[in-house]
Amino acid sequence: MEHENEHLDIREKLLRLPKIQADENFLKRLQIQIDILDSEERTRDVVEKGSVSGYFKNLFGARLMPALGITSVIVVAVLVYFVLADKKDSVVNNLAGNKNQETIITKEKPEDKKTSPQNETKELAKNDVNTQTPSTNSLNGNKTESDNISKDKTAPKEKIQELTSKTEGVVSDERGGQINIRGGRTSENNIVLDKIKQQVEPTKKPDEKQTEAEKKDTPKTEAPMTSTDSEKSIKEGGRGGVTDPTKSRSSIKPKKKEPNEVIDINKSVLESLRDKLK
C-alpha cells in the first residue's frame, strides 16, 4: 500500500498526458491489410488443391532426388530380405515334410512287403520269438528243423533284437556258427506269405503261444546241436536264417501254392517238440 501512495505526483502527471487517437485512415489501411490476408489464404488453398499435378514435379526435384534414391534402395533391400526369409522358411518346411514322409514310408514298408533288411530281420526275429515256429527250412522238408527251433526258442528276445539291429543279417550262433538272419528267420506265420494263410494262421497263435510259454519255462536241457547238425541247419536254412535272403524269398513265393502242406508240417513239428519236452 505504501508503494502505491509513493510518487503519486508522477502518476498524476502521467495520467494527464494526452490520449493519442487513431487516424481516419487507420481503419481503411487495416481493411486493406485484412483483404490482402484473406486473398493470400484463398490462393494458398487453391495452390494446395491444385498442387497435385505439381506434386510429382516437386517430388522429383533436384533437392529430393538423393533422398528418394536412398529411400528406394532401403525399401528394395528390405523387400529382398523378407522374400529370402520366406524362401528359406519354405525350404525348411519342405525338408521337414520330406522327413516325415520318409518315416511314413519306412513304417509302411512292412505292409507293402518291401521293408529294409534291418526291419525285415527285426520282424522275422520278433515272429520267431513269439511263435517259436520252424523257419523256411520246413518248407524245404528238412527234418532237423525241430532241433533248430528248440534252440532258437531259448534265445532271448533282446539278444535277437540287438543282433538284428547291429548286423546286416549275419549273426554268430552260440556254437560259433554264422546265421543269416535275413534269409531264414521266418515264423510259421510268415512262411507262406499269403494273405489267406495269414488270416487262418492267427487262430493258431494262442496255442503256439502256450507252447512257447511252456518251452520258455522249461530249462535248456535239450541236446546240444552237433556241428554237423548246425551246419546242416545253416545250409538248409534252419532256424537262424541259413539261406540267402534271395533264396528264402524265392522259396517263399512258390509256397503260396501249397498252404495246406505247411499247416500239416507245422503240426508235426509241434508234436515232435512236445514229445521231446516230455
Binding site: 498526458l17 490520449k19 493519442i20 487517437q21 487513431a22 487507420f26 481503419l27
Partner: peptide, 11 residues
C-alpha cells in the same frame, strides 16, 4: 481497442 492500443504503443 484501436485508440487505447495506439496510445499505449505510442507511449
Amino acid at each position: 481497442y484501436k485508440d487505447k492500443l495506439i496510445n499505449f504503443l505510442f507511449r
